[in-house]
Design a protein around this nucleic acid. Structure first.
Lengths: 231, 231
DNA sequence: CGCGTTATGACACTATTGTGCCATGACGCG
DNA sequence: CGCGTCATGGCACAATAGTGTCATAACGCG
């Protein structure tokens, strides 16, 4: 048995090594290619064997790197449009700006985001989830951002419509939407952005209209509950 | 120089070999995994070397196989709902049925379609397009299908709105939409289908409303779009 | 400082991808 | 039928992924 102190783990050193590998990988992945484990290891000034000690698979290493890169991008994009929160009222404008920023950041980092998709799509979730601990799925910044833009109308919409709107918007922005518009529809970046913005506006309006036009219907449906909760 | 007759190419034999390889690959890919070239070759009873003569890359072989599988799926799905073309008028119902069928076939073949995505997403189009002849991109059945459902209102909408609507709908159906709704939003299959159907209906209505709301509004809208696009 | 723990590096090894070379066997055509 | 063409198969080879083993150097702690 070793000594009682199990804190001998050299977390500092391991942290530095991991960071060096990740930084090197991010840099290489961002430039578009799918670097060899040996390349990343060389760039990080560690041995190939050590790289494999930190990331059991090339894929996992690149996924971590891609997520790392995306994290930085999104943080920056959110900051960029966070200052202009002047209006809490015009939801349509809020959403439009959010979509615009999201699409522009997606275009600007299409390469990296496509890599992330390709690496995180792998196998469908219903597959074996016991063997490989799903690699910690991709970040959900997009949802948070949409939710931020939609905050003013959250109560007005009600939970069901609100969640449904978020889901629908999630389909229409981000890298997946960009991929569809580019690869399937052959659109240019500016055209793709316009389609996303138009769709987002249409979905928002449809959701809002549902709340206003169905007042009578809602009354009929949930008459008693609504009346008691109103006050 | 060989003999003048260049038709000595044994197209029959080559066709059979290619088909054997493709069939074997489809079968293996459909079951979820990413088979080795040697595995496919063995299953097709040809040598590994020959397999590489037909498909320069494992990836291309699997892409072809995936596309082959998807082609079959879509053809079947289209047939399935083709008989019920009773109504040429109710576009909303037409689209809804199309979306419903598309989503159900996407759910039923999520595994294969995810594989197809992973393999066809590869590198962004703006990359080097001279070296690798883009592998013949994935089939665009989805677009054709949407167009079919939208046929009755094509003229009414006009080219710009029509194309935009197709693009927007393309984002909201198919495997990419399913991936977003499942992986990002954590929805179940039935919930995902509902969101897609709702979004499709909303987008269609928005497009139709634009045509009926008047010509003055269109003028104003055009001006606004131009202004924002300029920035 | 010195010692033991522990991360690292070097080497070896298997599996797979992708390619080159050449013999061989099958196909087609006169 | 015979011969030439052409697809195929077998072998060898380089590059990369991933793993095991062991020596060594760095680290932390008394």
């Amino acid at each position: 048995m070793p000594s009682a102190r199990a804190s001998n783990e050299r977390v500092q050193q391991k942290g530095r090594t991991r960071r060096a590998l990740l930084d090197a990988a991010v840099q290489l992945v961002t430039s578009g290619a799918q670097p060899t484990v040996a390349e990343v290891a060389d760039a990080a000034d560690v041995s190939r064997r050590t790289a494999y000690r930190y990331f059991p698979t090339q894929e996992q290493m690149l996924v971590e790197a891609a997520l790392e890169g995306v994290r930085g991008i999104m943080a920056q994009a959110i900051e960029g449009s966070d200052g202009a929160r002047a209006d809490i009222e015009d939801v349509e404008a809020r959403l439009d700006r959010a979509v615009q920023a999201l699409q522009q950041s997606a275009v600007a980092n299409e390469q990296l985001l496509r890599t992330m998709i390709r690496l995180t799509i792998s196998a469908p979730p219903p597959a074996d989830s016991a063997l490989n601990p799903p690699v910690r799925k991709r970040g959900y910044r997009r949802i948070e951002w949409i939710a931020l833009a939609l905050a003013p109308v959250k109560k007005k919409l009600g939970k069901r419509r609100y969640e449904r709107l978020i889901s629908a918007l999630a389909m229409c922005v981000g890298i997946e939407a960009l991929i569809v518009l580019r690869d399937l529809r052959g659109l240019r970046e500016s055209e793709a952005e316009e389609v996303s913005r138009w769709a987002a506006r249409a979905l928002l309006r449809a959701s809002l209209e549902e709340t206003t036009t169905s007042r009578k219907a809602r009354k009929a449906r949930t008459a008693r509950t609504a009346r008691t909760a109103r006050t």
